[in-house]
Design a protein around this nucleic acid. Structure first.
Lengths: 239, 239
DNA sequence: CGCGCGGTGACAGTTCCATGACAAATCCCC
DNA sequence: GGGGATTTGTCATGGAACTGTCACCGCGCG
């Protein structure tokens, strides 16, 4: 029925690349491997992939540069970064470079497979209509630019966000209208080694509301879903 | 609402297994122990675990083989390898076998607990994220989205449901047209632990009727079957 | 040292839900 | 059809669980 999805694995450590490839193939994907930066970019330019798994530390060109270059050339293939560095800075840099997701090493194989699945599904839905060129998010008179971390709220005041605030917003915005659990927020915004309490998440929501909601007590965009997490909407909602 | 997570510890050294189990239990997990390879595989096949801690050196079958076999059979339960061998090759082999993470012995209990927490945290939402789109239930002009717990009733008003309300609705909806006994509702919605009175069930039915029935006194969808339970129908019914 | 950011704990406010009481409906046997 | 027993509808209530919010601490940085 459907063509097998083809995935490009850019990873210089051979064993790891092999392991990933085997597991992806077991899931029915077609996989190519390349271990050097410039060669990788060349393959990406040639096109034909549905997803790129991109290591950051590479001989030749680093992953961020590859992604940025490709995006600048209008290539929209989704990119999932794999990297040993899991600092927040890195995460932000990955998102800024135009990456779709970010997986810190050491990662769990099941997790990789799951994320691949999620990305491909999301992709096939709206074919990149939104994310393509506009790293600027607009909702209810507010706007925020993920590139510069600068924003403007409905009343015209400048709203520069901190990196963490921006990451949270991004995670929520990537799943507009859907409920995002606290666990998912913690995972995507903090990553592998840190475990802030869920209280921390609430705090960031409070801040985002203060910045962007007309009435923080009656949120129109950052809705809480009791017992689970939060839901972000672009259109205002009464409830 | 959170069931205790159940963890299977596969480890042949009894003292160590006991120690791990105690610590996990202190964290609120349910723990089973098995010390032999074939028995372990049998238990894994039977399922029911949320996570498997898997020693590599085992009598009977080694951990890698167990994991590989299980994965080949489509079992996706996350696996955390415990092993004395800590070479890179070993780590890669673990990943290739389908493991999710890898912890070299000797390890600190704290670290084990931390990784367990991370794996479970992630897995809990990947499961949800990867299971196709959330189903939407429609009946008599109403609609409800089980993914976001958002609904809209026939008169256009927003009807966000609480988790319990949603669960009840789901249980009923899974057996459209059939009578669902109170016992079954209690069982499926509350689980083994808690058994609220049957009065509680009635309460939820009342609430669902208020939300979705045009005339709650003359229910078209949430019918009561005296002496047994309730019956949900999609098409309106006079009685 | 002052400052901004991020994480934590405490407390208050809110929402949820289990329960008991009572009214209403239904059944059953006569 | 009547009367009592049983079952269900509905509401008020209190405790538990969850979230909003704030003040505080620590850390890195100039």
């Amino acid at each position: 029925m459907t063509e097998p999805r083809s995935i490009l694995v850019v990873e210089d450590e051979e064993h790891l690349a092999q392991g990933i490839a085997e597991n992806l193939e077991a899931e029915g994907y077609r996989v190519s491997i390349v271990g050097e930066g410039k060669a990788a970019l060349a393959m990406i330019r040639r096109g034909g992939q549905d997803l790129i798994l991109l290591d950051v530390m590479l001989p030749g060109l680093d992953g961020f540069t590859i992604c940025e270059t490709a995006r600048a050339e209008g290539i929209q293939t989704p990119v999932l970064f794999l990297t040993a560095k899991s600092s927040v800075d890195d995460r932000v840099q990955g998102l800024e470079a135009g990456g779709d997701d970010y997986l810190p090493k050491p990662f769990h194989l099941q997790e990789l497979l799951a994320r691949v699945k999620v990305i491909l599904r999301r992709w096939s839905w709206y074919e990149r209509a939104t994310q393509g060129a506009a790293p600027v998010l607009r909702f209810g008179g507010n706007e925020f630019d993920f590139g510069s971390l600068q924003g403007r709220s409905w009343d015209g005041t400048q709203q520069p966000l901190t990196q963490k605030e921006a990451v949270i917003l991004k995670v929520l915005a990537e799943r507009v209208g859907e409920v995002v659990s606290r666990e998912e927020l913690l995972d995507k915004a903090w990553g592998y080694e840190l475990f802030p309490s869920t209280r921390t998440v609430d705090n960031f929501i409070v801040r985002l509301r203060k910045r962007f909601e007309r009435d923080p007590q009656q949120p129109q965009h950052f809705h809480t879903v009791r017992g689970i997490g939060y839901r972000f909407t672009v259109q205002g909602e009464s409830s």
